[in-house]
Write a protein that binds this DNA or RNA. Structure first.
Lengths: 139, 139
DNA sequence: CTAATCCCGAGTAAACCAATAGGGATTGCG
DNA sequence: CGCAATCCCTATTGGTTTACTCGGGATTAG
């Protein structure tokens, strides 16, 4: 029941961008350094986040990345979904999957997985980058 | 954010045992058949569950597996922990891990992962095999 | 022009997963 | 007793995923 480094790194990188929101683009190199993430690896993740519409990038000298929205409008759940796929402990409770289950009792365990999915989603979608910034500031 | 087949299969197998609790041991073969799980693979999982003290086994003809406790006393969380390890979205919020974080802002994301861990634990530890049986019965 | 920067695709070593293979030990029953 | 049913254990395998690394191309501010 672990998220992968993709999700961890992604949230850390986005948090870094959130902490400097409105101050112009931040180059990959700086994010990677400050968050201790392999630069090339992070590059791939940022590409994914860009294609998901969560960050904007500027090429060329003085370029870098910035959030596509204000920190308060980006939910952690969006970041995780972009990098790790649907938030669902088992495939059959993914959004948009046919709920018909051939196993009669499959449904018994299915309800459980739905509850688990919902509680995970609730946490991840009720927290925004702004919340993380506040928590970091209040210490 | 998926649990592996180990966890899925394990819960299904334990549910099967719960549905027939008190009716003597059920052979692996039957569990595997009813739950459509590879017999040899399930054997490994049952070994793990036995060593975790969640099931008892009887060898020889007429042997099989049965729950070590009443269904109401076995939490899903125990099954998952036995088969998948600690319930924690990231390593640094596992129980018993040093909470000191070298990254100053690591703590900002750490709080998030703790909340996620707690909400997952809450669901998995508040549901017992008896709950699954009830849900299956009420339809 | 050039240095800084993003962009992209390929390759890779290690780990993990789900399953298979093959045999050994126990035990109820005829 | 002897055998079939059953659990027990270790090893191996093929496939996938993970977390990177490598090398080069495109863009742009100064």
């Amino acid at each position: 029941m672990r998220i992968s480094s993709r999700g961890k790194y992604g949230v850390r990188a986005m948090f870094e961008l959130a902490m400097h929101y409105g101050q112009g683009p931040i180059p990959l190199k700086v994010i990677a350094e400050r968050q201790q993430i392999s630069e090339h690896y992070l590059e791939q993740l940022m590409g994914t986040l860009r294609r998901a519409g969560l960050v904007n990038s500027m090429r060329g000298a003085q370029g870098g990345y910035e959030l596509a929205f204000a920190p308060g409008e980006i939910k952690i759940g969006q970041i995780i979904r972009a990098l790790e796929g649907p938030i669902a402990p088992v495939e059959c409770v993914e959004d948009g999957v046919d709920p018909a289950c051939e196993r009669f009792e499959g449904c018994a365990t299915r309800l459980l997985w739905e509850r688990l999915r919902d509680s995970m989603t609730e946490v991840l979608d009720s927290t925004t980058l702004a919340d993380l910034c506040e928590e970091a500031a209040s210490r």
